[in-house]
Write a protein that binds this DNA or RNA. Structure first.
Lengths: 101, 101
DNA sequence: AACTTGCGCAACCGAATAGTTGCGTTTATA
DNA sequence: TATAAACGCAACTATTCGGTTGCGCAAGTT
């Protein structure tokens, strides 16, 4: 099972969950209220988000609150930034290559 | 078929293809040389990348060069930025809510 | 003209996804 | 104490994914 941030944000429902949790911590029940699908379906998404640490959990009685961990989002930032570096330096790298020849 | 940038970057092989194309335009054949899997498998990934406009195509004789379209990467940036906004303003939004009550 | 190369397309296959329903358990409430 | 609510977990299902092999075709090469 591939479980990283990139796979986590691939699903539109999960992106919506992330956006909701960015606003405030919520229970599976509360989250499910914002979607068409069942609580169990949402819980499955939450499980995936938890597994790749995008979301953390805190129990309060019989309710289970889930929090966004914004730290994990940085992984995406880092990848984008590295890509940008490659893109911007590609001509220099070509220069170097030509110099080497 | 869900076909957006987020699904495009979900697969590690596709992320690697994107990184290679950021460096320079390449043919499916050329790309496949960097991976274990077959040319056809890589072509399938390229097709997905093309469908969501992450990659553009330019034929040259019998060779088919694929280029990265860095513009599409901005969609991810935009989403991240919006998320950041929600995250940073969540206390203000809570304030507003409390004021409204 | 015959051959090789680069490519896209289709068929097929096993595994993963995203969803469902149906429990059992724990916690709160009447 | 009986009942209801919130939840996780398991089983099942249809679809999608990522990969394979095997064409056929167009563009170069010999």
């Amino acid at each position: 099972m591939r479980r990283d941030v990139f796979q986590a944000i691939a699903d539109p429902t999960r992106r919506a969950i992330i956006a909701l949790l960015a606003l405030q911590a919520m229970t599976p029940q509360g989250l499910a209220g914002h979607f068409e699908s069942s609580r169990q379906a949402i819980s499955k998404h939450i499980k995936i988000l938890t597994e790749c640490e995008v979301v953390t959990q805190q129990q309060s009685g019989r309710e289970n609150y889930y929090y966004l961990n914004p730290e994990r989002m940085k992984d995406i930032d880092i990848w984008l930034e590295r890509l940008r570096q490659i893109w911007e330096n590609r001509f220099h790298q070509l220069d170097n290559l030509l110099n080497d020849l």
